[in-house]
Structure formats: C-alpha cells, structure tokens
Simulated scan of single mutants.
Amino acid sequence: MEQGTGGRWRRVHSDEFKAHVVEASKQPGVSMAAVAMANGINANLLRRWVLMSLASTAVPPRAELASLPTHADFLPVPMPTVPSEQALEPAPAPIRIDVQRGSTAITVLWPVSAAAACASCLRELLS
C-alpha cells in the first residue's frame, strides 16, 4: 500500500509482511540482500526491521522476570590471578653491538635500562 502527502509517496507495509520478511532473513545461509530484493524492499529497510524485532524481543515479559535466578542463586567462581601489566609487556631487546677487527669478532649485549652507561663505555673505547 502506498501513502502520499505533499507530492511524496511512501510505501506502508503490514506487520504481517514485516514479520514474514524478517523470519525469511533469519534462515541459515540466506542473505538479507537477497530476501529484500525478492520481496521488493531495500536491504537497509529490512536490516532496520530485523534490528527492531531483536530490540522488541530483548526485554522479557514480567512473567518471565519472576523465573530469572535471584542473587541467592549466585555462585562465586574463583578466577585465576592475572599478572600485572608490566609482566604482560615483553622485555625490550638488549642493545647489541657487533665489533670486528681482522679475524676477531666481539658481540656485546647491553640492557636497554643502562643505555647511558653503554654510551659512556663506547666513548671511552673509541677515544
């Protein structure tokens, strides 16, 4: 059915049609775009109808609220201890210095936390 006001026309769909199309889109292996195209509607409109149907079923009726578990039914579950954030971060790679003179090769690994001491040692060796 189509409605028109002020020169603009808009199609109006029945609730039964909307429910039928939403159910058809929920079938496994069916795309919303294909269902929308087969029923002559825009895929964005169908997506909106699906979201609206999910929102309307998300809140249980009052009768169902009474059957939900209460706090007395709550059972605490022990959780494993999580290491601090520092333990989760990987250790920075050490400063690596490779020196080769003739047939002699030396590799020096220096911790990044002592970078200033590394620079000082290199200044002394190279001066």
Rank of each mutant, 00 (worst) to 15 (best):
Q3V: 10
G4D: 05
T5M: 13
T5A: 08
W9Q: 14
R10C: 04
R10G: 04
R10E: 13
R11H: 14
H13V: 15
S14R: 03
D15K: 11
E16V: 05
E16K: 13
F17T: 08
F17D: 14
F17R: 04
K18F: 03
H20T: 15
A24G: 05
A24W: 01
S25Q: 11
K26V: 01
G29F: 02
V30G: 08
S31Q: 01
A33K: 07
A34E: 14
A34R: 13
A36M: 00
A36P: 07
N39L: 02
N39A: 02
G40L: 07
G40M: 01
G40P: 02
N42L: 00
N42P: 00
A43L: 04
N44P: 00
L46C: 12
R47V: 06
R47P: 03
R48I: 11
W49V: 00
M52V: 10
M52H: 09
S53C: 00
L54V: 13
T57R: 02
A58Y: 00
P60G: 01
P61K: 03
P61V: 04
A63L: 07
L65K: 02
S67H: 04
L68Q: 11
L68Y: 05
H71Q: 14
H71L: 12
D73C: 09
D73E: 15
D73I: 10
F74P: 01
L75I: 15
L75W: 10
P76S: 09
V77S: 07
V77L: 02
V77I: 13
P78L: 09
P78G: 03
P78M: 03
M79I: 15
M79V: 13
P80Q: 03
P80K: 08
T81R: 09
V82E: 05
S84L: 13
S84N: 04
S84Y: 00
E85L: 08
Q86T: 15
Q86S: 12
A87E: 11
L88M: 12
L88G: 10
A91I: 15
A93H: 04
I97H: 08
D98N: 15
V99Q: 10
Q100P: 10
G102K: 14
T104G: 03
T104D: 09
T107G: 09
T107S: 13
L109M: 05
L109F: 13
L109V: 04
P111Q: 09
P111R: 09
V112R: 15
V112A: 13
S113V: 06
S113D: 12
A114V: 01
A114P: 02
A114I: 11
A115R: 13
A116K: 15
A116E: 10
A117F: 01
C118N: 06
A119C: 12
A119F: 01
C121P: 05
C121T: 14
L122M: 15
R123M: 13
R123A: 08
S127Y: 02
S127D: 11
